[in-house]
């Protein structure tokens, strides 16, 4: 389990990183936290000719609030998201989600940019940025490109990023005082990739959702912003309406079969999560029971 030989370049600036990517194209891989890349290389599932290490680029670090936007640098590590007061205040969903990402050793190294660019459909942060209506900021030879999170994820390990581009930051609207969040996932062991998970942002007023964004993960080839949420917005949520939304959710999901769960089980668990989410956000525990009890 030794990686095949590869060249290594430590980028001195974003510009330098882009030059290296331009020079090597598909044969290069960007090394950020390395928590997915290095195991894949050691298993020889990936054999890039060159690693472009962006770990030294201070310009990609940091969490800042700029107007109504929260800007998180691509090199921000999971542990920083977990501990940052700005994240806790403006995007608590990220903090809640990161607690479920692997284990401390991995969170100390892994970065948000790496996680988003890797685009594992079962990982937490892609679903969070979809739920938070975030914008992915990338730089390439032609300059900066801003991509809506909902447009960024294209499939298993596939994104809108091209091989000569670098993900530099993620921007999201700061949480309004009326926003509430929900994060829950089902994993066989704490820290494992989820069997099914849900990251949600909502605005609740007078017992109704005036906004609800449901970012499901591990239910398809990319994080899914569930349309079923629409049924619950600006309507009195009754058990019958929730059941209807659950059915709609099951219809729009196209889950994959793997060793943890069949598609039917994923549909079922997504429905459980939807009910638990709605019950929690509306503070109406009786809604959680659903049709199965």
């Amino acid at each position: 389990m030794k990686a095949a030989a590869f060249a290594y370049a430590r980028a001195t600036s974003v510009v330098n990183a882009l030059e290296l990517l331009a020079a090597h194209g598909d044969r290069a891989k960007v090394l950020s936290g390395g928590q997915s890349l290095m195991p894949a290389m050691n298993l020889r599932l990936l054999s890039p000719d060159i690693l472009v290490d962006i770990g030294g680029l201070a310009e990609l670090r940091g969490i800042a609030v700029s107007g109504r936007a929260l800007v998180v640098g691509a090199l921000t590590r999971h542990v920083d998201l977990l501990r940052s007061p700005e994240i806790a205040l403006h995007a608590p969903l990220l903090r809640d989600a990161v607690a479920h990402v692997a284990h401390p050793a991995i969170r100390n190294r892994g970065t948000i940019g790496g996680s988003l660019a890797h685009a594992d459909p079962a990982s937490e942060l892609p679903a969070c940025v979809v739920a938070l209506d975030a914008t992915i900021v990338v730089r390439g030879p032609a300059g900066e490109r801003r991509i809506a999170a909902t447009e960024f994820f294209r499939g298993i390990y596939e994104t809108a990023l091209s091989s000569d581009e670098l993900l530099v930051a993620v921007e999201m609207p700061v949480a309004g005082h009326d926003a509430s969040f929900f994060f829950q996932e089902f994993a066989r062991r704490h820290g494992d990739y989820a069997v099914v998970g849900l990251a949600a942002r909502a605005v609740v007023a007078a017992g109704r959702f005036s906004d609800l964004r449901l970012g499901f993960f591990a239910v398809g080839d990319r994080p899914l912003l569930a349309s079923a949420a629409g049924k619950l917005i600006d309507a009195p949520v009754t058990p019958a309406l929730l059941a209807e939304a659950t059915t709609a959710l099951a219809d729009e999901l196209d889950p994959q079969e793997d060793q943890q769960a069949s598609p039917a089980m994923r549909r079922h668990l997504a429905g459980v999560l939807l009910r638990r989410c709605v019950a929690a956000l509306l503070a109406r525990p009786e809604l959680e029971a659903g049709a199965t009890r």
């Binding site: 089902f186 066989r188 069997v195 943890q260 769960a261 069949s262 089980m265 079922h268 199965t292």
Partner: peptide
């Protein structure tokens, strides 16, 4: 596993 238990419960 959850799959085994849900199946036994007739949930899936």
């Amino acid at each position: 596993t959850p799959q085994v238990i849900l199946t036994a419960l007739g949930r899936i």
